[in-house]
Amino acid sequence: MGQQYLKVNSIEELLVNLDKPGAMVLCGGTDLVVKMRSGLLSPELLLDISDLPELREIRNIGSKIEIGAAVTQSELLASEIVRERLPLLITVLSQLGCVQIRNRGTLGGNLVNASPAADSAVPLLLFDAEVILTGSQGERRLAVKDFFRGPGKTALSNGEFLRAVLIPLPNPKLSPFFHKIGRRKALTIAIASLGALLHVEGDLIHEVRLAAGSVAPTPIRLRRVEERANGKRVTASLIEEARKLARQSVSPIDDIRASADYRRTVIADLVAHLFEGVLHV
């Protein structure tokens, strides 16, 4: 009722309209349309950015990759540079939703929706990626970790939109790990997920980065575990400490998918399992 739809043709047109009351950006619509139908959101003006060429590019700039907000998950999965340099992102996106959802869903949309279970947030946190936010005042860059402010809440100000994601190419020696626990093997929202980038030599951890989804109000890095483990050798006591620290780092909730207890335990056990894996190569 009183709802308008506008397919914008330029970023300028988008910015002009984004200031209007009740305006919202529509891209893939895989979350937005669902929320509109259930009455959770009732935007008055939908600004469709899905065909803006500026937002649909994957660009390699020096040591970084810039991904336009409207690039679909399927396009990322097909991208040569992403496949080559960001294998973790491929692993994660190939488990996000289903083919039909990935054909419409975008990287930017998955972030802006700010679900604690947003699959693509986990690798972006691990990459220390940034988001580029554009408004009529200009552009600002923000670490992905600072972009999430709570379930459904982001650092976007009024009149601002997410233009692109900037990913520093990780050291190729960092091997990817991702485990998403769902109630089935595909087309499922994570009960909990753990992602990691890990560089080990023998039992020596040169570098480890850990991030988890669905276990806190936002997807999070497990910094305390990382700090404890970086530069250390994997021992039984390190594993137990990591398990404990991981447990302490999360603040999950009970919901229809699982209990907080399970989430806490399973993240701790997955972290421990990851380090145990180093000992059992």
């Binding site: 089935r184 093997k185 087309l187 499922t188 229809i256 998918r257």
Partner: peptide, 15 residues
């Protein structure tokens, strides 16, 4: 408490 197929899960081909 389940109102649709997001929360009521049936097996997919992968299961």
């Amino acid at each position: 408490m389940t109102t649709g197929f997001t929360t009521y899960r049936i097996p997919t081909i992968r299961d």
